[in-house]
Design a protein around this nucleic acid. Sequence first.
DNA 1: AACACCTTGGAGAGCGCTCCCAACCATACG
DNA 2: CGTATGGTTGGGAGCGCTCTCCAAGGTGTT
Lengths: 331, 331
Amino acid sequence: MKRPTLEAVAALAGVSRATVSRVVNGQTTVAPHIREAVLRAVDELGYVPNSAARSLVTQRTDSIALVVSEPPTRVFSDDPLFATVIRAASIELEAADKQVVLMLAGSAKSHARVERYIASGHVDGAMLISMHGADPLPAAIARMRVPVVSYGRPAVPVDIPYVDNDNVGGAEAAVRHLVAAGRRRIATIAGPLDMIGGQDRLTGYRNVLRDSDRRSIVAVGDFTRESGAVAMRQLLRDDPHLDAVFAANDLMAIGALQALRQAGRRVPDDVAVVGFDDIEAAKYTDPPLTTVRHPVADQAAAMVRLLLGLFSGGPSDPVILPTELVIRESA
Amino acid sequence: MKRPTLEAVAALAGVSRATVSRVVNGQTTVAPHIREAVLRAVDELGYVPNSAARSLVTQRTDSIALVVSEPPTRVFSDDPLFATVIRAASIELEAADKQVVLMLAGSAKSHARVERYIASGHVDGAMLISMHGADPLPAAIARMRVPVVSYGRPAVPVDIPYVDNDNVGGAEAAVRHLVAAGRRRIATIAGPLDMIGGQDRLTGYRNVLRDSDRRSIVAVGDFTRESGAVAMRQLLRDDPHLDAVFAANDLMAIGALQALRQAGRRVPDDVAVVGFDDIEAAKYTDPPLTTVRHPVADQAAAMVRLLLGLFSGGPSDPVILPTELVIRESA
DNA sequence: AACACCTTGGAGAGCGCTCCCAACCATACG
DNA sequence: CGTATGGTTGGGAGCGCTCTCCAAGGTGTT
């Protein structure tokens, strides 16, 4: 009635536990006919090795935690970022025959659970995704003796390897595009400044404006469409004559598009709009959104490779991936 | 250098392993001052119990697998269904202090991994989400002696408990609404017929049409927006005079809206459109989409409770949740 | 003061597996 | 024909933990 053990298989096949273990783990030092007998017994009993027992002795679990340190509402919002990352990372990890354990660590309470989970040896390593500045998790996890990598540069300087995209460069390219098009009053809808992506994209915007001798006009959103609309209205009040907006992500750009339409501005004729991310929806806005594409899936895959590399003593240097300006009709 | 064990804590606190175990597991039969000493030692060494060792003896893992038997492209598509289910289930499971292990089982290869994972005792139970008719996974997992529940009635008759919403009733309500509004030629864009949701919603549509003496006009999509647009164009060719469409989900309804606009039809004046799901985007379509809301999050929570109930010998009867017609402007 | 009873801590057996080491057998060589 | 060699197999320890006894000590009662 209970699940069969190695012992049971050994008994049925008329060999020792050790031999069964060898067959199950694919060692070649077993005589073919014995191997056959063992496999038959395994099949007959429906034997599957007990993972707890195995990892107790091997000290490995072949599982990797994917920790998303955000409230669930944001993880599974309109923003497909997390979905893309999770998907790409899963594919890459499964290719390496690792099991993905997805963990949402949005609240302080779940932080504790996650820390405990990782510390208790459930996983061989962990990947952290998108945390805010005050997030204590990276530091906490880095303290354990578990290999960890981060998706995106941690906001707090913590000594863990990470993979990021060139946020500053991408923002610069976007704003340079607006400058090149002759736009004079270029505003930005920045992301949350406690997030590294928000900071870096604002930095890129400021770099170009400074170099091109324009004034910066800044409103801050929180990466949601609604906040983009609110920020856009704010900007229009601040400077009714602005002729371009760079939004720190597409969702806010879409919100800005709505607000502009409501305010009776034509895009791109009156106001040019550029987003960041190149999400799917950017193709279907009216007009289609010019935006900065960054390789989310590649970045996730690179993160996985970085972590797997750590297991075998590979380098722990940060990896930075390039971005690309996608020009559509909004700017 | 290694991770501290019970033994180490016991030595430091000057007690036996058993006593430390009692303290760590919150047993009350330990004298306060000894308890203090143990906790101090735990703290000092940064001790965290080894989960493999623990579950080897307890035969529990306190983890639950959430198996999504769909290709990742669909799981993390525009369709927020999976996201909502995953989120709600996670919240509910964490409340019960269970760890969620999310597994994507889109390919045959990953099926094998998932089966092995579950069979090897990594989790105490499993939840299956949204599978197509030919999916062998429910049957395979049901065969193991692991408690399993399904989100949605399994397409293949398999004896596992499930939680579903009233797809037939919801579709009926939607189509009855169109009938009541005086629509004469009511078409439907059905979902994939190898999915139970697709079947049931089509059944509901047919039930009402039959009772109200109208002809059914059916096109089949695959729950994506694109397929909705394609199906809509098809329907317009089949019957240029149709005056209403019931789409089996909102994404296809949105595609239909696009196709109708391109064809120069006004919604709802010329053609009324009703969707199913009440996703977030349904509020923002032009015009806002009339649709059938079903309690996705509630359903997920109910699924979790059903599974947890199974552990303690609770009932394994299917749970069916009601739906609600949300009337906006498209019909 | 002796007894029973209850509380509390310790000893030890395993949970199911891997892996080291030793024993074995067969072959080949001196 | 004995011994060295190499390839297979089995024995057994132990991974870190829980949990069932059991013993020791303390308390209260008669």
